[in-house]
Simulated assay, not measured.
Amino acid sequence: MADDPEEEPRLDVPIGMFQDIEDIKAELSRLNTLFNSFTGGDGAEPGEASAAEDAAAGAEPDEGEADEDEWQYPPFILLLDPPAYDDELRALVEWVEGVLVPGYLAEPSADARWCHLWFEHSVAIARLHAVWLAWQELTDPASCGYTGPSVWHRDHLDPALRELRASSGPFSGCTKGEHQIDHRMPSTVPSAWSHGID
């Protein structure tokens, strides 16, 4: 009785398809959030001004609003001037020393170098800041779904650590004998504040 409208259809769906559908839903949600942040979330088409924007077209933006727009997205750390640079570096140091070093860095070696004064290397600051910004976005399930951490490891952390810890990377001269910089085990992370960061 296949023509009986009361009979439930039998669907043979592979189990993995449900996970794919959930991933697509999460990505769609992330894209909707991103789209709304770009368009102001008022439902207007891209490039279409809202009535409020039309009314304020000739008015000067409020100084507080201009500051909000300017800092809506994190800037590249090396382009910041003090004190904004100092504040961003402090936050980065806390994340690197509190999350990255204990969780991801093994004892340094000739094949996997690390400098405990990494914040004195501008290339390391730039790469680690980029990894940290990606971590902030990709560990938020509301914006990236459940695949964010995997994407962060694959696309951000692993390539950055390969570059930083390579024998030709920014720490290539930071060996015990050459620079007098004692590398440390991850379990004995020195406080970054004791190295002169104010």
Rank of each mutant, 00 (worst) to 15 (best):
M1V: 06
M1G: 07
E8Y: 06
P9H: 12
R10W: 13
D12S: 12
D12G: 09
V13T: 14
Q19E: 14
E22D: 14
D23S: 13
D23I: 05
L31W: 09
N32I: 07
N32T: 09
F35P: 00
S37I: 00
F38G: 03
G40C: 03
G40K: 02
G40Y: 02
G40M: 08
D42P: 02
D42N: 07
E45I: 13
E45T: 12
E45K: 14
A49Q: 11
S50V: 05
S50I: 07
D54F: 13
A56W: 12
A56C: 15
A59I: 06
P61W: 13
A66F: 07
D67G: 06
D67A: 08
D69C: 06
D69A: 03
E70M: 09
E70W: 02
Q72C: 04
Y73E: 13
Y73N: 02
F76L: 05
I77Y: 04
L78T: 10
L79Q: 06
L79R: 00
L80Q: 03
D86G: 01
D86I: 03
A91Y: 08
A91R: 09
L92I: 12
L92K: 03
V93P: 03
E94L: 12
V96L: 02
V96D: 06
V99A: 07
V101K: 08
V101M: 14
E107S: 07
P108K: 01
A110Y: 01
D111H: 10
R113P: 08
W114V: 08
C115N: 12
F119W: 14
E120P: 10
H121D: 05
S122R: 12
A126C: 09
R127W: 07
L128I: 01
H129V: 02
L133M: 07
A134T: 04
Q136P: 00
E137K: 01
L138D: 05
T139L: 03
P141I: 05
A142T: 05
Y146S: 11
Y146K: 04
T147P: 00
T147Y: 01
T147F: 01
P149F: 08
S150M: 12
H153E: 08
D155K: 04
H156N: 02
L157P: 07
P159H: 11
A160G: 01
L161H: 07
E163D: 01
L164C: 03
A166Q: 02
A166E: 00
S168K: 08
F171E: 02
G173V: 04
C174G: 05
T175H: 08
E178N: 13
H183E: 09
M185T: 11
T188S: 15
A192V: 04
